[in-house]
């Protein structure tokens, strides 16, 4: 099924730093279908949250170019009043930081109730309360009736995160953006929350963008995966393909740096260097080049593009054809090219 819900084309989101604009999201194009989880992975600073905020229309001062087509409406440049009507109802977001996302002065019932009321002003107080309790049950909060009257600081981190998820799914959104929804949580609670997101996808036919740096979570949840580096998508593929035949050097490096649960490795792979700050991002040539300096300069493209190397499998720059890890022999790989 190929039911397009979101279609992003050539999106560029730039922040002003001193007198210049710098793109944190640079020429990103992607689709999200109904009943699909698209995972976005990448190191800290690669632009994942900036992309999510762009879709949600939450950047106040950023410059946005390109288009974000959501169910036939281009969200780029849409009047704030119009985007407010969509946000929180047809699309919503679970934020990365659970502490700042809740109002410390409002009870849990008030916070969840507010979102329900905002998009359904006719609802009675009784129905609203029933809905709040139902949502709290749904996200696995025990003693929902009691929790209703509590304030955020009276809940543990895991409970707070579940309240945030309850708010995000209150109006059964068609598109849900979950930015690191389980990073702060224990594995057992994480498993519950992931089940919940999976349910939302299946029962409500929702499209989901799941931002995470946990590749295990990606493997369990995603239908497709986009890998971001320095504001660009460097690889995008179906989940099995991405784990079995990763092509871009960055994707391969990321996969190699997590402890593999099956074998006892002595050493994990380390990606040299760091993601440069926004003002220092290389804007020309292959942006990942500086982190794989042992790969010959000539293997990179001058203007790296996404190539469809197999159906639905896109890889940026030609360097992937010549990539090898420093501890592998070059000879082994040169046969590839």
């Amino acid at each position: 099924m190929n039911d397009k819900l979101l279609e992003i084309r050539n999106l560029k989101t730039s922040f002003r730093i001193r007198d210049d604009y710098y793109a944190a999201v640079d020429d990103v194009s992607l689709n999200v279908n109904k009943n699909e989880v698209l995972a976005i992975v990448g190191e800290s600073g690669s632009g994942k949250s900036a992309l999510a905020f762009s879709i949600m229309g939450l950047h106040n001062r950023a410059k946005m170019e390109g288009s974000i087509n959501f169910k036939g409406t281009n969200l780029v440049g849409l009047a704030p009043g119009k985007i407010n009507k969509i946000r929180g109802k047809e699309m919503s977001m679970i934020f990365q930081d659970p502490l700042t996302a809740l109002n410390p002065l409002m009870t849990i019932e008030e916070q969840i109730g507010e979102v329900i009321y905002l998009h359904n002003k006719a609802i009675s107080n009784r129905d609203k309360k029933a809905k709040v309790i139902e949502l709290l049950d749904q996200v696995g909060i025990p003693h929902a009736k009691y929790v209703c009257d509590q304030y955020p600081h009276e809940l543990s981190g895991g409970m707070r995160q579940r309240v945030i998820i309850a708010i995000a799914i209150a109006n059964s959104p068609e598109l849900l953006i979950a930015d690191e929804p389980t990073t702060a949580l224990d594995v057992t609670i994480q498993a519950q929350i992931l089940d919940l997101i999976r349910d939302l996808k299946q029962k409500m036919d929702a499209g989901i963008i799941l931002i995470t740096h946990d590749l295990g979570v990606v493997a369990e949840m995603a239908d497709r995966v986009a890998v971001m580096y320095a504001g660009e998508i460097v690889e995008i593929a179906e989940v099995n393909t991405l784990f079995e035949q990763p092509r871009h050097p960055y994707t391969r490096s990321l996969l190699n740096s997590v402890p593999n649960s099956d074998e006892k490795q002595d050493k994990l792979h380390v990606i040299q260097g760091i993601v440069p700050a926004l003002q220092n991002l290389p804007r020309e040539g292959c942006r990942f080049k500086t982190r794989i300096p042992w790969i010959a300069e000539s293997t990179h493209e001058d203007h790296p593009e996404l190539h469809e190397i197999a159906p639905n499998h896109f890889v940026r720059c030609s360097c992937y054809e010549h990539f090898y890890f420093p501890d592998e022999t070059e000879v082994e790989n040169s046969g590839l090219s």
Binding site: V187, T188, A191, L194
Partner: peptide, 17 residues
């Protein structure tokens, strides 16, 4: 329960997991 909750890095094991 803890061990079962660890996400499996192989998407092929998803259903079994």
């Amino acid at each position: 329960r803890l061990v079962a909750a660890i996400p499996d890095i192989n998407p092929k094991n998803r259903d079994a997991q």
